[in-house]
Design a protein around this nucleic acid. Structure first.
Length: 459
DNA sequence: TAACTTTGACCTTTA
DNA sequence: TTAAAGGTCAAAGTT
């Protein structure tokens, strides 16, 4: 993980609230080197400062997800997570480290970004994992998602792998995390500025466009811009501040900033403390400190929680129905997974994309992982049906793959989206409006797909 | 009969 | 080198 000597002796050169950069970090910044948690926390704090205060967007420093992943019981997790108010956020960015040894502060070798996404009306709540070297951090991301799910109102929130350009060396994963975070924040701001934008859009395209490597993306470009020096003179300027003992660092009462902290260190942070409640208060206090703006300095405006205008969210929710056609080619129980894993290939003749789906016994999707990218447009949806006869037609096709193609539609039938359709006059649901009970499974699926198609066309 | 799923066997990857 | 686990194939079963 991060590297450096005894941190207590390390000289602090820059701070952003309680996020502090040490002299050894400057060496890392002059790179190319593996980014440590201080730098990641620092840059995320800087990103957060670009947003007006709001509760919708939350960027967490790496220490918080790591702590949550390794707490011994759900009660402790709930106590720590409670002040974060994850359930009420639209987007939560959680850096993930693969350090398996909670006693080893410098363990771990890979950074990725897990996004708790509650901003997309189509996909519904989901975890999106950005890994520049997949599937290296997938177990760690799964562990974090599993810890967070009980804290969220929706059940069985799926985890999907988001498109992430591959790193081409052994050290740029942290840079990729920051670049993805920047792309997401920029997308979020853009979406907020265009209130008429699609509520079903997401940042995945924005991530694809992001320049990714430590040459084209410097996490501290923005920091340089905030300093009274050029990027070239950055190190010299820090040296001067240090020698003058008037460093840019501000007084902080928080934990000594560190490399990725061991679990015991994290626990000590929250335990200077002797009760779960105090743990919460400690974290709340730390967050509050971040939110205190220090006027007139280079590192103002740091907040952990930032937000923008709330996007419009329709009730449309098609879960894993992604517009592509899939053929199932295998299923098996894999070790460490609670549910069977199904293997799918895109049915387009030249498309290499596959996906793995783990589904709960009640049909909800626990996880989706997508292996490449589609090399073709989404297939045209079937022509819009105009009456319940279309339902009969769909059922009569005896399409054995229908349920597979429409994963999630079952849930849609009972969802708020259907209720909305009933109120608003979605044509295909005349059967519902007339009080007809739909007991046949295929009919229910048929109603669901027609409903979704009508909504798509209407949108 | 065609399209699709299921499932056991086999292949590949990884530690 | 080997064993374990994941991924894929393909025959059999189902709709």
């Amino acid at each position: 993980m991060a590297h450096g000597g005894g941190e207590e002796e390390e000289e602090r050169v820059l701070s952003h609230g309680d996020v502090v950069l040490l002299r050894c970090d400057l060496t890392i910044l002059r790179g190319p080197h593996f980014l440590n948690d201080r730098i990641i926390a620092f840059y995320l704090a800087h990103l957060a400062a670009d947003h007006d205060a709001d509760d919708d967007l939350l960027l967490l420093p790496p220490s918080i997800p790591y702590l949550l992943s390794n707490l011994p019981d759900p009660a402790s997790v709930a106590a720590v997570a409670d002040p974060l108010r994850l359930a009420s956020r639209r987007l939560v960015l959680l850096p993930v480290n693969d350090n398996p040894d909670v006693s080893h502060a410098e363990g771990g070798s890979h950074w990725t970004l897990l996004v708790l996404d509650n901003s997309n009306a189509v996909s519904g709540p989901r975890f999106v994992h950005h890994d520049s070297l997949p599937p290296t951090n997938l177990p760690a991301a799964r562990r974090l998602a599993a810890v967070l799910r009980p804290l969220l109102p929706a059940s069985a929130i799926p985890l999907i792998e988001g498109p992430t350009p591959r790193q081409t060396n052994g050290y740029d994963c942290g840079v990729f995390v920051l670049a993805v975070a920047r792309a997401i924040c920029n997308w979020w701001l853009t979406r907020a500025r265009h209130s008429d934008s699609d509520s079903d859009s997401d940042w995945l395209e924005a991530v694809k466009r992001e320049p990714f490597n430590s040459t084209s993306f410097s996490p501290f470009d923005c920091i340089y811009q905030s300093l009274p020096v050029t990027a070239q003179d950055f190190g010299t300027w820090c040296d001067m501040q240090s020698h003058k003992k008037v460093a840019a660092v501000k007084p902080v009462a928080s934990r000594p900033s560190s490399r990725l902290r061991s679990f015991s260190m994290l626990q000590e942070d929250s335990t200077a403390i002797d009760s779960p409640r105090k743990t919460v208060e400690h974290i709340q206090h730390a967050i509050k400190r971040k939110q205190i703006q220090e006027k007139g300095a280079c590192w103002d405006n740091l907040t952990v929680s930032q937000s923008v205008r709330k996007p419009n969210v329709s009730a449309k929710n098609s879960l894993s129905y992604d517009g592509y056609s899939w053929r199932k080619y295998g299923q098996k129980q894999v070790k460490g997974s609670e549910f069977p894993r199904s293997y799918y290939k895109c049915t387009h003749p030249t498309c290499p994309v596959k996906r793995k789906v783990e589904m709960t016994p009640d049909g909800r999707i626990a996880e989706i992982v997508y292996n490449g990218e589609h090399n073709h447009p989404k297939p045209h949806p079937p022509r819009k049906p105009t009456s319940s006869t279309s339902v009969e037609t769909l059922v009569a096709t005896n399409d054995a793959g229908l349920e597979n193609k429409l994963e999630g539609c079952d849930q849609a039938i009972g969802s708020d989206a259907v209720v909305e359709a009933l109120r608003g006059g979605c044509h295909c649901l005349d059967g519902f409006r007339n009080g007809n009970e739909i007991s046949d499974c295929k009919k229910r699926y048929a109603y669901a797909v027609i409903f979704i198609q009508e909504k798509d066309l209407a949108d």
